[in-house]
Design a protein around this nucleic acid. Structure first.
Lengths: 332, 332
DNA sequence: TTGTACGCGTTATCAG
DNA sequence: CTGATAACGCGTACAA
């Protein structure tokens, strides 16, 4: 591996000049610039990023800690983050907290010892307070897919309320009035906001909110199944279900299939997130699109900006309705 | 950020002693060791990994370049790689080639300039020759999910032939004799091997191979759809389909649904890969399980081993059959 | 067992 | 515009 010294020797200039050429410093004569470039080319020179990092105290890398790397959510997000970052000479170091608080903390420490320029946090296991604490301890932490009021300017999050509203409004527009909702775990702000959007749409249409029509889905793998079952066992009448996410919608699909029914017939179903596998569902799922890729891009840009001028602003992204086949006008 | 010097000052010893304590060197008196540890604790000392890397010429990080970070495949794989690696103090730097050869090459260069200890290659866009060339150029490259004969000892790959065999054998055992197959793109070795497994099973059962029953699926998003359509338009009789992957199986699901049929009735369907979303298909897909997580673990261990003693051996993993609902005995 | 001092490959300051 | 030279933080022979 060639070093800057070998390049400077070959080019017959000082290391300083080589360094200047690398960093696009203008104050180098054209002759020397070309000599240096030729030498670099010949030696296949690649600057040692550790030496650079040591000298500049910047690592040109950003760390991301996610709850879990698997699952359909993080792939696309990391993809877009990495693409933007790399275009600007930054690298992405990926760590996973395995959805355990302690491991998430440890991941942050780890990244910090790697002197990353910034840390992206995409975690659920920690409480808001713990996130806040972490942000105090280490600078340049950004929070994705989560809104922490005290950290508003470092959060990139979805307007979940709007999504809940859009989903419900769509059903109302189709003529539904008896609309149930299976929410995600309500200890998560997202889930509460989505529910609030549902309520907003109802109230806007003058439809009364009925707690009987609400069920809370829990965390576990089959949390959605249990919640959906509960709803259908209740003695309430409804013609549509707004789901807290696509997985819950799948649970509803399953329940309907047991009676040989299909979503969009007696019961309309709306999902939330538009996970890529949702298109494999039949009938195709009407759902709320979560702009995952945009969120990644926004995060990457926020990091990039904060490295120059250290002002940042939180970013709120907007979900949108994707109408497919699982919703239709109620049968009269 | 505290440095080794501040620690040594506080502890009243030399930097060398602090360094020794960090690196578990025995030749430090118990007294000093404790003093140093106390000082480190008090200062919240974290070694600067760049300085370490510069001094030792080792980075304690491994890079991975994947064709694309999105898609259901890489999440679980990276998850397992990262978990193993981190346990051994190594970090994972993730880069994506966006399925373009040039970007994949560039990613390798990038990682190399980061002085990663090893590079994991999970790419499809490059040809074997290009991969070989790269391995010559840079040492410590490992190839995942791909078998390159010349690079056998650095490959971690699946026994695809066995998978094809298992899928087909399962159908034969159920009583099928007219078994079609929609393969993946046959320029990929995987696809050819899977097809070969299909042939082996047929021949073992004394069933003649009929080219009319074979269709090649292509790359594009709808490649599977087109291939499936082609098969069903042909004037051939069959009661089961072995698919080159789960996506192709989904295409078959779709075609059957157009005539209000369901897999496992007139036509049985077997997938390949057992992508996690396959469980959301209804009826649930019978498929070949690809041990993604194991592959990640094997890769991480291979890297770890090669860093100590630089001997490595290729690893072949075995797929297994997962019987669910999309296969049944043929109707008589 | 401990400390001194040099080297790792860059950047950046300061004279020239 | 260019070249010495001092950091940057740590590991490690070598000497004590």
């Amino acid at each position: 591996m060639a070093t800057i010294k070998e390049v400077s020797d070959l080019a017959g200039v000082s290391q300083a000049t080589v360094s200047r050429v690398m960093n696009g410093n203008n104050k180098v004569s054209a002759v020397n610039r070309e000599r240096v470039q030729a030498a670099m080319e010949k030696l296949g020179y690649q600057p040692n990023s550790f030496a650079q990092a040591l000298a500049t105290n910047r690592s040109y890398s950003v760390g991301i800690v996610v709850g879990t790397l698997s699952g359909p959510f993080f792939g696309p997000m990391m993809q877009s983050i990495e693409t933007v970052l790399r275009k600007h000479g930054q690298h992405l170091i990926a760590t996973s907290g395995d959805d355990h608080i302690e491991q998430e903390r440890e991941a942050v420490r780890f990244l910090h010892s790697r002197r990353v320029d910034a840390i992206l946090l995409v975690v659920q296991a920690m409480t808001d307070d713990e996130v806040i604490e972490l942000c105090k301890q280490y600078p340049n932490i950004y929070v994705l897919n989560r809104y922490v009021p005290e950290l508003a300017e470092r959060c990139i999050y979805l307007n979940n309320e709007l999504g809940g509203y859009l989903a419900t409004k769509h059903l109302i527009d189709l003529g539904h009035t008896k609309i149930a909702s299976i929410t995600g775990p309500l200890i998560h702000l997202d889930a509460r906001e989505r529910l609030q959007g549902y309520r907003n749409a109802l109230s806007e249409a003058g439809i009364e909110y009925d707690p009987q029509l609400i069920v809370e889905g829990l965390f576990q793998e089959d949390g959605g199944n249990k919640a959906a079952a509960k709803l259908f066992q209740r003695d309430v009448d409804f013609t549509a279900v707004v789901c807290g996410n696509d997985n819950i919608a799948i649970s509803v699909y399953d329940i309907l299939s047991r009676t040989n029914e299909s979503p969009g017939e007696r019961i309309s179903v709306v999902g939330y997130d538009d996970m890529f596998y949702s298109r494999y569902l039949r009938p195709k799922l009407t759902t709320i699109r979560f702009p995952i890729v945009d969120m990644g891009i926004a995060a990457a840009n926020m990091v990039l900006n904060s490295l120059d001028q250290d002002l940042t602003n939180g970013v709120q992204l907007e979900p949108s309705l994707v109408v497919r086949e699982s919703t239709a006008a109620p049968r009269s």
